[in-house]
Amino acid sequence: LGPKYVGLWDFKSRTDEELSFRAGDVFHVARKEEQWWWATLLDEAGGAVAQGYVPHNYLAERE
């Protein structure tokens, strides 16, 4: 699936296409579209919880 990303700060969605998340949440990014990335929010087991657009500057690649 490629690298995983972690949320740096809490983010509250403003549209139906955006995905709310908390700092520390883990994502798989499917598409990078300039300022907004289409991402899947993952649970602790790595299963998909939700999908939506997230601001790229709120995520960091997980080491």
Rank of each mutant, 00 (worst) to 15 (best):
Asp10Trp: 08
Val29Ile: 09
Asp16Glu: 12
His56Asp: 06
Lys32Ile: 06
Trp9Arg: 13
Arg31Leu: 07
Tyr53Asn: 02
Phe11Trp: 13
Trp37Ala: 03
Tyr5Met: 02
Asp43Met: 04
Val54Leu: 04
Ala23Arg: 11
Val29Asn: 01
Leu1Cys: 14
Glu17Cys: 15
Glu34Gly: 15
Asp16His: 11
Ser13Tyr: 02
Gly52Phe: 05
Glu33Gly: 14
Gly7Lys: 01
Glu44Ile: 08
Ala60Lys: 13
Arg31Ser: 07
Ala23Leu: 05
Glu61Asp: 08
Ala23Met: 08
Trp38Thr: 01
Lys32Glu: 04
Pro55Leu: 07
Gln51Met: 11
His56Lys: 14
Asp25Trp: 06
Leu1Thr: 12
Pro3Glu: 09
Ala45Gly: 11
Lys32Gly: 04
Leu41Ala: 01
Gly7Glu: 02
Lys4Gln: 13
Gly2Pro: 12
Ala45His: 14
Trp36His: 06
Lys32Leu: 04
Ala30Glu: 15
Gly47Ala: 14
Phe21Gly: 02
Gly2Trp: 14
Val49Pro: 02
Leu19Pro: 01
Asn57Val: 06
Glu33Tyr: 12
Asp16Cys: 11
Glu34Gln: 11
Arg22Val: 09
Gly2Asn: 12
Val29Pro: 02
Asp43Pro: 00
Asp16Val: 10
Pro55Trp: 07
Glu63Tyr: 12
Asp25Cys: 07
Trp36Pro: 00
Trp38Ile: 06
Asp43Cys: 02
Pro3Asp: 08
Leu19Ala: 01
Gly2Phe: 14
Glu17His: 12
Gly46Ile: 09
Asp16Met: 09
Lys32Met: 09
Val26Cys: 08
Glu34Thr: 11
Leu41Ser: 01
Pro3His: 10
Val49Ile: 12
Lys12Ala: 12
Asp43Gly: 05
Val6Thr: 06
Asp10Lys: 04
Leu19Met: 10
Lys12Pro: 05
Ala48Val: 12
Glu18Ile: 10
Phe11Tyr: 15
Ser20Thr: 10
Gly7Thr: 04
Phe27Val: 02
Arg62Ala: 15
Gln51Ser: 15
Ala23Glu: 07
Ser13Val: 01
Leu59Ala: 02
His56Ile: 10
Trp9Ile: 09
Trp36Gly: 08
Thr15Arg: 14
Trp38Ser: 00
Asn57His: 11
Glu18Pro: 01
Ala39Asn: 00
Val26His: 08
Gly24Leu: 04
Glu63Arg: 11
Phe21Arg: 00
Glu18Tyr: 13
Glu61Met: 13
Ala30Ile: 15
Ala39His: 00
Phe21Tyr: 02
Trp37Ser: 01
Ala23Tyr: 05
Glu17Trp: 13
Ser20Met: 03
Asp43Thr: 05
Trp36Phe: 12
Glu63Asn: 12
Asp25Thr: 05
Tyr5Lys: 00
Glu44Thr: 09
Ala39Trp: 05
Pro3Lys: 14
Tyr53Arg: 10
Asn57Thr: 09
Thr15Asn: 13
Gly47Cys: 14
Phe27Cys: 07
Tyr58Gln: 01
Ala50Asn: 06
His56Arg: 13
Gly2Met: 14
Glu61Trp: 08
Ala23Trp: 05
Glu18Gln: 15
Trp36Val: 07
Gly2Gln: 14
Thr40Gln: 07
Glu17Arg: 13
Glu18Met: 13
Ala60His: 09
Arg22Gly: 04
Ala23Gly: 04
Ala50Asp: 08
Ala23Thr: 05
Trp37Asn: 00
Trp9Lys: 11
Thr15Glu: 07
Thr40Met: 11
Gly47Ser: 13
Phe11Asn: 02
Ser13Asn: 07
Ala23Asp: 01
Gly52Tyr: 03
Phe27Asp: 00
Phe11Gly: 02
Trp36Gln: 09
Glu61Ile: 15
Gln35Leu: 15
Gly46Pro: 03
Asp25Val: 06
Leu8Trp: 06
Asp43Glu: 01
Asp16Ala: 14
Gly52Met: 03
Pro3Gly: 10
Gly47Arg: 15
Lys12Phe: 13
His56Ala: 15
Leu1Gly: 12
Ala60Gly: 08
Asn57Met: 08
Asp16Gln: 11
Thr40Gly: 01
Ala60Asn: 06
Thr40Arg: 04
Ala48Pro: 12
Pro55Met: 05
Tyr58Arg: 02
Gly7His: 04
Glu63Ile: 13
Leu42Pro: 00
Ser13His: 04
Gly46Ala: 04
Leu1Val: 12
Trp36Lys: 09
Asp25Tyr: 06
Leu1Ser: 12
Arg22Met: 10
Ala48Thr: 10
Gly47Phe: 14
Ala45Glu: 13
Glu63Phe: 11
Glu44Arg: 08
Val54Tyr: 03
Arg14Lys: 11
Thr40Pro: 00
